[in-house]
Amino acid sequence: MQNGTSNEWLSDRAFGICRLSLLSIYREPVVGSGLTSQLLFGELYQVLRKTKDGQWLFVEGEAQAGSGWILASQHHDLTAGSYSFFMQSPLHITTATLSRVIWEKSIVYLLPGSQLHAGNQEIFDWEASFSFEGSSRPFSKKACREELVETAKGFLNAPYLSGGRSIFGLYEGSWLHLIFKICGYIVPNYLSQLLTAGREVGLSGIQAGDVVIFSNEQGIPSRAGLYTGSGQLLEIHGKVRFSPFEPEKWITGKNKSKQVQVLHVKNLMGS
Rank of each mutant, 00 (worst) to 15 (best):
M1L: 12
G4S: 08
T5V: 12
N7C: 08
E8A: 09
E8R: 11
W9H: 06
W9N: 10
S11N: 11
F15L: 09
S21P: 06
L22I: 12
L22F: 15
Y26F: 15
V30R: 14
G32T: 06
G34P: 01
Q38Y: 01
L39H: 12
L40Q: 12
L40N: 08
K52V: 12
D53K: 12
F58N: 05
A65I: 01
I70K: 05
A72S: 15
S73Q: 14
S73I: 11
S73A: 15
Q74N: 11
D77L: 13
L78G: 03
T79Y: 05
T79I: 11
G81Y: 03
S89L: 06
R100F: 09
V101E: 05
S106E: 15
Y109L: 07
L110A: 03
L111V: 09
G113C: 04
Q115R: 13
H117M: 02
N120Q: 14
Q121R: 13
Q121C: 08
E122A: 15
E122M: 12
E122L: 08
D125L: 07
S129I: 03
F132I: 10
E133T: 12
G134A: 10
G134V: 12
S135I: 02
S135E: 14
S135R: 09
S136F: 13
P138T: 07
S140M: 06
S140K: 06
R145C: 03
E146S: 13
E147Q: 14
E150S: 14
A152I: 03
L156T: 10
Y160A: 04
G163D: 04
S166H: 06
Y185L: 07
I186V: 15
L191G: 04
Q193N: 14
Q193K: 11
L194Y: 14
L194D: 01
R199I: 10
E200I: 02
V201D: 04
G202H: 08
L203P: 00
G205Y: 06
Q207N: 13
A208G: 13
D210F: 04
S215Y: 02
N216H: 07
E217K: 10
Q218K: 13
G219A: 09
I220P: 00
R223E: 10
R223N: 13
A224L: 10
G225M: 11
L226I: 15
E235V: 06
I236F: 05
H237N: 11
H237K: 08
H237Q: 10
F242L: 13
W250S: 05
I251C: 01
I251E: 05
T252K: 00
K258R: 13
Q259G: 10
H264W: 09
N267E: 10
N267Y: 07
G270P: 00
G270R: 01
